[in-house]
């Protein structure tokens, strides 16, 4: 499934979308960046409430297909700008991490 289809199905807010056609394979949830760095796999969708600038760096390093910010967590304009520059898809959901993960799991 592509990132753009995920956006439609889950009614996600688009914050940065340089690669709408990227294929999603599996997912990962977590907020401790060090933990995510060593465990999220390429093409995963990563669901988190963390919105620190380092989210972009960790997403690049792990090569995830998209980051989904759960619970409508606040995210700074600087982080979104950085994501666009680095080619990272960032989306946002109103739902908590648990519900978001379940919704993703039903789709893929």
């Amino acid at each position: 499934m592509t990132v753009s289809r995920l956006i439609d199905e889950l009614d996600l807010e688009v914050l940065s979308l340089p690669f709408p056609d990227r294929e999603i394979k599996g997912g990962y949830t977590g907020d401790l960046l060090s933990w995510v760095m060593g465990r999220a796999k390429a093409d995963n969708v990563w669901i988190t409430i963390m919105t620190n600038i380092n989210v972009v760096a960790v997403a690049s390093l792990s090569d995830v297909a998209a980051v989904v910010i759960a619970e409508n967590a606040e995210i700074g304009a600087g982080v979104i700008k950085k994501a666009e520059e680095q080619g990272i898809n960032i989306l946002r959901s109103k739902c908590p991490t648990y519900e978001t993960a379940i919704a993703v799991a039903k789709l893929i």
Partner: peptide, 10 residues
Amino acid sequence: MKIKNRADIF
């Protein structure tokens, strides 16, 4: 944690 640095990112 031993994760190789990527200077282009970090």
